[in-house]
Each structure stands twice: as structure tokens, then as C-alpha cells.
Design a protein around this nucleic acid. Structure first.
Lengths: 194, 194
DNA sequence: CGTCTATTTGAATGTACTCAAAAGCGGTGG
DNA sequence: CCACCGCTTTTGAGTACATTCAAATAGACG
């Protein structure tokens, strides 16, 4: 498995010397996750933050009626975790599984904490990517409150053109917050309009 | 103005010695904001993160139809900012104004950045509160996707019992994502059911 | 192939919105 | 201190966006 992508990812926000790079890499576990296999089940305590090397994962919750609601897609070069469970070390409400055969690098929470102290640059790195997640999440929340399903779908298409091609429509419906049937109707209306 | 609350707030996550406390306090500006006055307008570049000493602020966006959507309430002891604008230093989409006469402490972004380098504990502090914001935001997003307006209102009442009493119903409607008229109906149905 | 799941299509329904008007409430000035 | 003004809240009727349930079709995978 080519593990360099994670160093490239990190280098977007902080600069590591080669010793720090080696130290960091030594903390990671590699893992292959086949399609439909789980990295985390709800009610488990999350012990890792994951970086996706290849494939695509998703995090989602299941409501009282059994419907899935996708919080995040994580294709290659993305980080994914159940932040609530990881930080509180309480059982979480999220599931994380693979939408296709995938390879991930796992950073244990305990090692992450040591990193923050040993190499403060890592605290900076995770601060920055957490800030970016927060900004994206806030925008998505406002979009959910102010836009119609059709507008949210169009924004999704623009924002994630790659995912549109590789991810089932059902999954996209679950991300933008509509039923698969309704997304199907939106799309057929949209095509007719042209 | 009593400025100790901010030190108490910070001490929940990091420990500062008295020199660090003084250094930090020297960076802050105090500001009084009367009800309906703005701390930040949309299309401005945000230069401060604010901590609320007294009163209550809110951040919100205005959609194409002129409707407000509240992203955050910030009563005493809360931090508030337009994270997008603050971090990117681009014009933002959020307004921040006061729901009642308020007092805030402002930390300039430039000083915050210096703090991160000079006293890495502050980088830790802001990492932690950003993580907490992210977790709360993710839960709110999932709630918006999976719950009815009535369920969201009940959760709001439980989560923010103080705000229910001090904030106009219209503002709460705008936070949970319904029209004021509909929230009024929800509440009257709820009372009748008893 | 055959099976399982995803997608499409349609009809009936429901949750929440729009528009309108009345009632309530709070602040301000005379 | 009362009267008025503006804004919030309530109430109602009609509407719209999105869901539910059902069934048909299409696609993916072994």
C-alpha cells in the first residue's frame, strides 16, 4: 500500500522533517475494508481516526424508523471518524462502512494525543482540519434549512462531481436529506426541463 | 466590566499561569453592543472572535427570499464568530447581532495567530472548542434530517432551557428551521395534548 | 441466467409553508 | 399613566414540497 498520500495531505497545512514523518508513519495501522464491511458500529467506542488511501467510506446514523442519514462521504485523501465517540470515548451513534473496497490508515486516539504533545505541529494540523470540517458542516446545515431538495442536489453535483459518478443515487439521497424516490423524480424533472 | 469569566471559560480546557493570563487579557478589546446592533455584517471580512460576557448574540444568514436562518445563539460564556470569514479572510455570509444589550470581549485574529505560536496551549484550547462545535453541529444536522419539527423543538427546549425563556419564539423557529407560524401551531397542539 | 438491490413511476397522504387577519405584548412619548 | 405604534404570536384556509406505499423496470453481481 502506498502510504505517501497521507504525508502529502498533512503537508498542505504543516511542514514535517523526515524524522517527524517517520515517527508519525510508525504510529499508523493499515487496514483493508471490503465493500459493506464496517470500520465502526454504532454503540461502539471509537478508538481511531481514519485516513482513506483508496476506495470510499461513509459515516451515517440510523433513525428510529430504520432510515439511514449520511453525515459524511470519505473518498481517497479524506479523514473520517465519529468525532463524538472519539473525543468523549463514549459509545457513539454513527456507523462507518465502506461503499467499495477500500484501504485506510488508522491513527489510534492514544497516539494522536501523544503527537499533540510531542509535536505541537500536529495539534495545529488537526485544529485546521477540524475548523474546515466545521465550516463545511455549518454551510450544509444552513443549506438544509434554506434550500429545496433540488437546489441541494445541484450543489452536491457541483461540489462532489466525482462522487456523483461513483456513489449510488440512494446514498446521495441519504446525504442531501431526501428519499431515494424523490431524488429520482427530481432528476427526471430536471432532465425533461432541458 | 468583569472580564474574569473568560479566564474561567478557558480554564475548563487548559491551565494558564498568571503571566499567561495577563498576556492574554492584554490582547482583548471590550465592546458593548446594544440590542439589534451588529458585530458583523454579511459581506464583511471578520477580524475578531468574540466571547460573550453578558447578554445574547446570534449568527444567521439571510436567504434569497429574505428569510433569516440562525446558525448559533451565543448567551453569556459562549464564543461566536463567522468561522468561514475569520479563517479564510474572505467576505462571509453571516450576520452577527445582539438580541439584547450585551458585552463582549474581542480577540483579533492576528493576535490569536500569535497566541497559537507563543503559547501552544491556546492552539489546544481552540482545537478543543472547535471539536465541540463540530460535534454539536453534526448532531444538529442529523436531527434536521431525521426528526420532525416538533421533535426538534422538544430537543431545543431540553438543551437550552434558559434560551427558551429569554429569546423570542420567532428566533427559536428560525434556529430549528421552521416558520414562526408553524412553531406557534406546534406549541398550541402540544399544550392541548396535555 | 437468476437473484438481489437500485431506480423509476404513480397515486394518495402528510408535514410544513404561504398568505391573511386578528389578538397580544412591549416600549415610547405625550 | 395612558395611548398608540410596531412587532410578535396566534389562528385559519388553502397550497406545496416531499413522503409513503406499491408495483414495474432496470442493473449489478455471483
Amino acid at each position: 500500500m502506498n502510504t505517501e498520500p497521507i504525508l502529502l495531505n498533512i503537508s498542505r497545512h504543516i511542514t514535517l522533517n523526515s524524522k517527524e514523518q517517520k515517527q508519525f508513519m510508525s504510529l499508523l495501522h493499515t487496514k483493508k475494508i471490503r465493500k459493506k464491511q464496517f470500520l465502526l458500529h454504532e454503540n461502539e467506542v471509537s478508538r481511531y481516526v481514519a485516513f482513506v488511501i483508496s476506495g470510499c467510506l461513509r459515516s451515517y446514523s440510523i433513525d428510529k424508523n430504520g432510515f439511514e442519514h449520511i453525515l459524511q462521504f470519505a473518498p481517497a485523501d479524506w479523514w473520517i471518524a465519529d468525532m463524538y465517540s472519539l473525543i468523549t470515548q463514549q459509545p457513539g451513534h454513527l456507523n462507518i462502512d465502506a461503499l467499495e473496497d477500500s484501504e485506510v490508515l488508522l491513527l489510534p486516539k492514544s497516539e494522536q494525543e501523544k503527537l499533540f504533545t510531542d509535536i505541537p505541529k500536529f495539534e495545529r494540523f488537526f485544529r485546521i482540519i477540524t475548523e474546515k470540517s466545521l465550516i463545511a458542516n455549518q454551510q450544509r446545515l444552513l443549506d438544509n434549512m434554506s434550500l429545496t431538495a433540488e437546489q441541494r442536489y445541484k450543489i452536491f453535483c457541483k461540489s462532489y462531481p466525482t462522487l456523483i459518478k461513483s456513489v449510488a443515487q440512494k446514498q446521495i439521497a441519504s446525504y442531501i436529506g431526501v428519499t431515494p424516490e424523490f431524488l429520482s423524480k427530481l432528476r427526471s424533472d430536471y432532465l425533461k426541463a432541458k
